[in-house]
Amino acid sequence: MGSAAALERPDKPVFVTRGLTKVYRMGAVEVQALRGIDFTAHPGEFVVILGPSGSGKSTFLNIIGGLDRATSGEAYFQDHDLIDASEAALTRYRRDHVGFVFQFYNLVPSLTARENVELVTEIARQPMDAREALALVGLSDRSEHFPAELSGGEQQRVAIARAIAKRPEVLLCDEPTGALDSATGVKVLEALTRVNEEMGATTLVITHNAAIRDIAHRVVSFASGRIAVIETNAARKPAAAVSW
């Protein structure tokens, strides 16, 4: 699918936020992490979010992922209001619709690659087979290994398999390549783009690595709690063409 089509198609947006703010209170100090974010994401979009540390990009991802609550503003996933949702509703939302990938993988060390994926498929509504998910990220032959027996890149791909196995509508990735070298990072990015294309999951990837921007449909840059720039890539590069 072309980038322009993704931007302009008339279907309902996956995410809509308006005037989203977040204030952290750290003792006597108030930290304004988000200062009014208006954002929309459409089905199947691959969005890269750039920005320096403290620009608010992770806070934003946490809020639309149902991990944190905004101080004010509106945030919707499809028809779900994420601002007024109860704790249980947010858990439900994460369980049914969201796939997460983190910088530090967060795999369960006592479960093998396949079992880590099954952890999620067991509680999901329409999961794919764990082996299928691992095949999508190119790890069919490592499925019986424990995390301690896998490289960092492999662990991150297991995390991606775990995130997509539930067939989520959205895939939220916070610095997925942050702990990886270039060659391994590319493999992870290839897995992400492939999943995005084959499953059509709206994918948001946070990174401070500008090299990654070329693989996105859109690039959103955060600065000081605001969206500074939104750029649309006229032509996406394949992940394999990226390096840093």
């Binding site: 858990t91 439900r92 049914d96 997460f100």
Partner: peptide, 8 residues
């Protein structure tokens, strides 16, 4: 992590 993945 499990809570994040949607475990209650």
């Amino acid at each position: 992590s499990l809570r994040v993945l949607g475990f209650t």
